[in-house]
Simulated scan of single mutants.
Amino acid sequence: MTRQSITLTDPNDEWIKSQISTYHEYSNKSELINDLIRQARRADMINQKLALSEASGTVNQNKEDMLKEFKEKLK
């Protein structure tokens, strides 16, 4: 993994801290930020796939196969 240093605005830092303390799903800021990035990447892939599908007029995959593909690409 690559170590990064980022600067957060005060409201964003407070929101991240509250997510960690309230939901206990993440043990630190890095875990939460990595999850947010994964969610954004997933949304981007879905939007790209939808745009291609809309442009072509047809879809060759069912929703389960599309989801499986997205999850594989995020690993």
Rank of each mutant, 00 (worst) to 15 (best):
A51K: 12
D65E: 15
L52Q: 13
Q19F: 07
N28M: 08
M1W: 02
T58W: 02
E14K: 06
T7Y: 03
N28G: 01
K17M: 12
S27F: 05
N60W: 09
T7R: 09
V59Q: 11
V59P: 03
I6A: 13
S30V: 01
E31N: 02
I16L: 13
D10P: 04
T22S: 15
D10Q: 03
I37A: 07
Q48W: 01
K63G: 01
Q4W: 02
Q61T: 11
N28T: 09
K17I: 10
R42E: 14
K73N: 10
E64I: 06
R42P: 00
D44Y: 10
W15P: 01
S18K: 14
A51Q: 07
I46Q: 10
T2N: 07
M45N: 04
A51G: 00
L52G: 04
T7S: 07
N12Y: 03
L52H: 10
T9E: 15
Q19N: 04
D65G: 07
I6M: 09
A55G: 02
D13Q: 04
D65M: 13
K71G: 00
M45C: 04
K17E: 15
Q39C: 04
E64Y: 02
D44G: 10
L32P: 00
L67G: 00
E14N: 09
Q39P: 00
I16V: 13
A51L: 15
W15S: 04
S18T: 02
S53L: 11
D35M: 00
I6E: 06
E25S: 08
I20T: 02
N62Q: 03
T9L: 06
M1Q: 05
A55K: 10
S30E: 01
I33A: 02
R42H: 09
G57R: 01
K71R: 08
E31L: 02
V59R: 11
E54H: 01
Q19H: 04
E25I: 08
K17Q: 14
K17G: 13
R38E: 13
E64S: 05
T7I: 10
N12H: 09
T9K: 08
A51S: 13
R3Y: 02
N60K: 02
L8F: 03
N34K: 11
E14L: 07
A51V: 11
I6D: 01
D10E: 11
Q61Y: 08
T2D: 10
S30Q: 05
K63E: 15
N34C: 09
D13M: 04
R3K: 10
N34P: 00
G57H: 00
I16S: 04
E31G: 08
Y26W: 15
T58I: 08
L74I: 14
F70C: 08
M1F: 03
I16F: 11
R38S: 09
E54D: 14
I20W: 03
K63V: 15
N47D: 13
D10I: 03
N62I: 07
M66H: 05
K68C: 00
D13L: 13
E54A: 12
E31C: 00
